[in-house]
Amino acid sequence: MSAIIECKNLTHYYGRRKIYENLNFEVPQGRILGLLGKNGTGKTTTINILSGYLQPHSGECRIFGENIQTMRPALRKRIGLLLEGHVQYQFMNITQIEKFYAAFYPGQWKKEAYYELMDKLKVAPKQPIARMSNGQRSQVALGLILAQNPELLILDDFSLGLDPGYRRLFVDYLRDYARSENKTVFLTSHIIQDMERLIDDCIIMDYGKILIQQPIDTLMHGFRRYTCTVPENYRPQLPESCYHPAVLRQTLELHSFLPPAEMESLLKAQQVPFTALKHENVSLEDAFIGLTGKY
């Protein structure tokens, strides 16, 4: 599979504050990749760099093999961009906005895809977007991207401001569209439950670095939560393969990619006074918290 997005040695600072250093990742063709991270880890920074609205301190990003800093209009035609908060031209109504965008995508614009989605919204054709709910605005923004019919979709925090119903609608519509049309999607969201239904691969970022990049199935099957009983006031000193070990009321909790047998051996080798070791597979949200910690 060829890479649609390639970022090499990406480094960025805001003033003296380092956001990340030497970040490398690729997004293969036809995959839906979710970028996950806590607030301030650089998700929106990455989206801004990818969409050409931020010049990185150093490093290079290529989309369809072309450097994004010199993105030609023909390349932008192949990329659908959803801004954080589903920002669109609020002074227009749904008919006007469709007419406006259609002029920029001759031969590629799928008017019917937009209106199919708009028909599901209970809004008058002349109602300005400014007077719509967040959920309705999200559908307008999504409808415009579907009509644009791009090869790559870049979506910044698509779940922002949406209630559960509209989040589900957005995810289901996007997933079906991306899968059936073999589109590549790069997205971020602060609601990780939504990602579980949608993404094929994930990148989990911590402050300044990428913790993991792997298919979601590998993560969900290989990452486990371990709990065991330990003496009161025990302070665990464990290697890096055990993520964020913490003791609460005689229960040691940690997360790891190690299989149960290896974990048991490791705890013994580290002379942890444990009993009743248990393990369980976790949801994506639990895996995210397990990897990045609660604080």
Partner: peptide, 17 residues
């Protein structure tokens, strides 16, 4: 309105110089 929520990005992302 173009600068509210950095809406200007929409215009600059269009396939036009």
């Amino acid at each position: 309105p173009e600068m509210q929520n950095k809406r200007l990005k929409l215009a600059l992302h269009l396939p036009y110089s």
